[in-house]
Design a protein around this nucleic acid. Structure first.
Lengths: 232, 232
DNA sequence: TCATACAGAATTGTATACAGCAATATATGC
DNA sequence: GCATATATTGCTGTATACAATTCTGTATGA
């Protein structure tokens, strides 16, 4: 009746979350026995899940030495941001060609609903989730499930750094506070999409992501230090 | 000293090849016991390899029912071609910004060396390999390893259809035979790259891939029938 | 003829065992 | 004290066993 999720799936979901949040430290070696008892499953399903995560880029694997957390390097994050630009801009192009006005309208409704919270929201994690949701909804308009799953993968792999980046931005906004009247980047993209203006939409999207990409190196630096500083 | 490749790795490489070539028929269920004896390894490493391939999009997995070959649908192939456009065009942009003249020159040398064979080559498989190699070399100029590995994944997943497509093209060329003097699409892209002309390069690349994408539906139809017709 | 129920066979899901390798600690020579 | 060799420990890699589930074929009833 309900979902009969297997041990592998449970373990996989949990591990993916842990890996995304860098609950394994960068380059840390993963002890299978310890982890298997912690997750309440034997090593067999655990290793199957670990292998999936290797293929997805969350972990690495060295023969005879086992599984390791991926490293956290600025270069890698910048590469992923570039890949994100590629995927999201392509998705946008396809959305312009294929999405119905109603579908676009639905995303606009979501934006209208969530945008007020951009300023007031307390939790940066919630903020990031809203942001990711918006981008995924946009990508879904492309009708291309490969692009969507690629974007999901990238988002999960850069989430930790994005969270740090977002905190940086908010800290600066507190000082600057001049963003009030300006159209949000999301709205600019969506307006161009609704007008079926491909060049404007793609350009806006590229710039939107580009701005974050430029901050990536600093964000990684902060993220790195944060991972090795006790949480007070 | 040399690579101490494990059982999982051997099995994985072999399975990936088999999956790419649709040696498993679309949607076919995979019998683990039979496959493990065939590959000379027990089910444990086999399943680890299968899990990797699921994450890479070569296979699917249903809880309690096991592993299946991915299905072969025009929609999926078209989606992958679109993703390829996204990746390769982005890589090209970055190559224009970052690749040195020497690096570009090296790819040009490769093109000069291989292009003569485009017309004479007997084996369509070899032809496709040369084509893939060219595109990978181009992507490598981006300096972005994420884009490269994404492209590799896509190429492996559409290879079977591309092979069929290539045979179609060659069959038509036999009749048309008017391609002699025209610049190859590869050369147009590479020239624009060397001239650091982003718009021209990206446009040429998009068109180059677009042409194949348009043929995808027909190619899939042929591929599908070919898979179920005895090889005489 | 079709749907349903059931029994047996086949297959998957997971735990466990153990051999072999890698990392670490200990001992030895200089 | 330092480097090198050696023993010990711990962990990984793979095979195998068995329980749980799914599938297949057959029989039964409408």
């Amino acid at each position: 009746m309900s979902k009969a999720s297997s041990s592998v799936d449970r373990v996989y979901d949990r591990l993916r979350q842990m890996a995304a949040n860098f609950e394994f430290k960068p380059d840390e070696r993963i002890n299978e026995s310890a982890l298997s008892t912690k997750l309440g499953a034997s090593r067999t399903p655990l290793r199957e899940a670990l292998n999936r995560l290797v293929a997805e880029g969350f972990l690495t694997f060295q023969n005879g030495r086992g599984f390791f957390c991926r490293s956290l390097s600025p270069k890698r994050i910048v590469d992923l941001y570039e890949a994100r630009q590629a995927i999201e801009c392509e998705a946008l192009r396809r959305a312009i060609a294929r999405a119905s006005d109603e579908e676009i309208r639905a995303v606009l409704d979501y934006l209208n609903e969530t945008e007020p919270h951009y300023k007031t929201c307390e939790s940066t994690m919630e903020l990031l989730e809203m942001d990711e949701d918006f981008h995924i909804k946009l990508a879904l308009l492309s009708g291309n499930s490969e692009l969507v799953s690629m974007l999901r993968n990238i988002n999960d792999r850069i989430r930790y750094v994005r969270l740090v980046d977002l905190k940086m931005i908010l800290a600066k906004k507190q000082i600057a506070k001049n963003e009030g009247a300006k159209l949000s980047a999301h709205r600019i993209v969506l307006n161009a999409l609704a007008a079926r203006d491909e060049d404007a939409a793609v350009l806006a999207m590229r710039n939107h992501i580009e701005r974050r990409r430029e901050e990536a190196t600093e964000a990684v630096r902060i993220a790195y230090s944060q991972l090795y500083v006790p949480a007070e």
